[in-house]
Design a protein around this nucleic acid. Structure first.
Lengths: 205, 205
DNA sequence: ACCTGAACACCGTTCAAGT
DNA sequence: ACCTGAACACCGTTCAAGT
């Protein structure tokens, strides 16, 4: 039956389609313009259909954020595989991957770190964000083993690192950092962070 | 005429009243619950009245953000006046003031650095945020003069500092940092930043 | 100048009912 | 199981009209 009509067309996966379309309009028209009714219209279903897959508008946003964390995690992990073995290289690659993701997904990052998540979804979210920081921990432990990172509790280095990375990404995304000097600013930040991580003894033994 | 009735009661400053009430509900019920109509109801005016003072809902949010930047700037400036003269002390005071403001005004900080500002208000906003970073510049130049901060272009130190401060505040506010260890985490970050700022020669001349 | 009241075009959410 | 259609209680914005 090749009627040529688009039919109701949603035998398929409405849930996934909603998420995909939501991220598109998020990027195109901003978070304020994201409405369940418009999403349903775009997908050719009734406005009540989405409620079968997301109990809430917030539930959809949470799912979007969770997917964002997954993808950010993947991007960060990938950056480590193409990087050199040295701590400096790995840190640089991590930083560039984080900021790259942030600028390419500005609205999504905003959503991921906004404070509206209901407690139910928060569990999944903090789990996802923790998986991210595990990567930082490994990076530092490895650097300590190689003697390229100062000794001390991992958290005393991992937290400042995570904090700095995210701060740069967040400021770049919000436009608080002049976009003209963004690249050199990032290099400044990487260099500064390396300094903070360096071991005490400057010369060779 | 002491009728005891509350009358229409808005001879006064509706604009200021709207801003005050908006920030209250922002803090109490979150940004999603902030509606112009409810604000008007709370203040005993018609739902169309706010439009005389803010052309838009966004215009009100922008004004809120701008006031936030002003207050943050004041808090940071105040932190410098009670602080010791040493760079370490001044940096610590600045960091604690920033994080203190952030945790006390979580939703407001979120709003201040979100990406929805219309270009008209953005001018005022970036001006306010620049006034903030000027403070950081002075701090560093002073530290360099005192020999407590390494030489080099101010931006190469100021940007990492601003970035780290804001990142910590943003993560704390979003709940991505475990709130139990928040205090020691902040001390870790301050110590790490001091390390990154320290001059090269470790011992006295 | 400042505000009201009605109107318009949207929302999110719920719920009986269809297939 | 998945979706529709109607209904409800809200929105933001605009605009004539009042004082």
């Amino acid at each position: 039956m090749q009627t040529g009509q688009t039919r109701r067309y949603h035998h398929g996966d409405l849930r996934a389609a909603l998420l995909t379309r939501a991220e598109e309009t998020l990027k195109e028209k901003g978070p304020a313009a994201l409405s369940l009714r418009e999403l349903a219209r775009d997908l050719g279903v009734s406005h009540a259909a989405p409620s079968r897959h997301f109990k809430d508008k917030q539930a959809l946003l949470d799912a979007l954020a969770e997917a964002g964390f997954d993808r950010l995690g993947e991007a960060l992990a990938a950056s480590q595989e193409t990087a050199d073995e040295s701590f400096a290289d790995r840190l640089g690659a991590l930083a560039r991957a984080y900021v790259g993701f942030a600028t390419a997904n500005a609205e999504l990052l905003d959503l991921m770190f906004s404070i509206k998540h209901d407690p139910a979804a928060s569990d999944a979210l903090i789990k996802a964000s923790q998986g991210m920081s595990v990567l930082g921990l490994h990076l530092i432990e490895d650097g300590q083993r190689r003697g390229e990172v100062r000794e001390g509790p991992v958290a005393s280095i991992a937290t400042p690192l995570f904090t700095t990375l995210h701060g740069f990404a967040a400021l770049a995304v919000s436009g608080a950092l002049p976009s003209g000097t963004l690249k050199t600013d990032l290099e400044y930040v990487i260099a500064h962070t390396l300094r903070g991580c360096a071991p005490d003894a400057p010369g060779p033994a």
